[in-house]
């Protein structure tokens, strides 16, 4: 299957449904010890460090936030310097055209604004999210009260659906894990 990835039309996944945070954390670690590669876990709430247990790389969102903050800071300084110092200097009591203390509030607000908007935009783009985007739900209960462990069959070559299901069941999945096909 991996040889013809370019023309692959769909992927097959086996999903195990768990009913408690502790159970899913246990299962994620144990199925990996048993040689399964976990594709993803869907949960109704954030679970700290779950991404680390699955082996996802650390997110670089904070770096994006810092870059946007720097951008906002620089833009504000440039804007105020240009407007008050270069384009239309005003004499106010003989004081400097560009005064650093009075730049502080606007620069701070612009830094926060651009950092927040830029970071959230990065978040949406990196997750392929946006208004009206179609979701693919392996099991709709994963936004209610269930934790869904998804195993990609392509990434676990040599293991049949039956074998994968057995491993998921062994660590507490609900009866009969099922297979889901997702169009490429």
């Amino acid at each position: 299957m991996s040889n013809n990835k370019l023309i692959k039309e769909s992927s097959r996944y086996v999903i195990g449904v768990y009913d408690h945070e502790n159970a899913i954390l246990n299962a994620v670690q144990r199925v990996q010890e048993d040689g399964l590669r976990v594709h993803e876990v869907f949960s109704p709430h954030p679970i700290h460090h779950l991404d680390v247990y699955i082996g996802h790389p650390r997110t670089r969102i904070p770096i994006a936030a810092f870059c946007f903050a720097t951008l906002g800071f620089s833009l504000a300084i440039l804007m105020i310097t240009f407007m008050l110092g270069i384009d239309w200097p005003m004499i106010i009591g003989g004081k400097n055209y560009v005064s650093i203390p009075t730049m502080v509030p606007v620069t701070f607000e612009a830094t926060v604004l651009i950092a927040a908007l830029g970071m959230v935009a990065t978040f949406f783009i990196s997750n392929n999210m946006g208004p009206g985007k179609e979701e693919f739900s392996f099991d709709r209960r994963s936004t209610d009260d269930k934790y869904v462990l998804v195993v990609d069959m392509d990434k676990n070559e040599g293991k049949s659906q039956e074998e994968i299901s057995q491993i998921l069941l062994k660590y507490g999945a609900e009866a009969s894990p099922k297979m889901v096909e997702k169009a490429a």
């Binding site: 876990v41 969102i61 999210m129 985007k133 979701e135």
Partner: peptide, 17 residues
């Protein structure tokens, strides 16, 4: 809902955000 799926990777980013 912006196509939210609730995967661990997205939740991790969400928590950082």
């Amino acid at each position: 809902a912006f196509g939210w799926e609730g995967g661990a990777k997205v939740w991790a980013r969400y928590e950082y955000v």
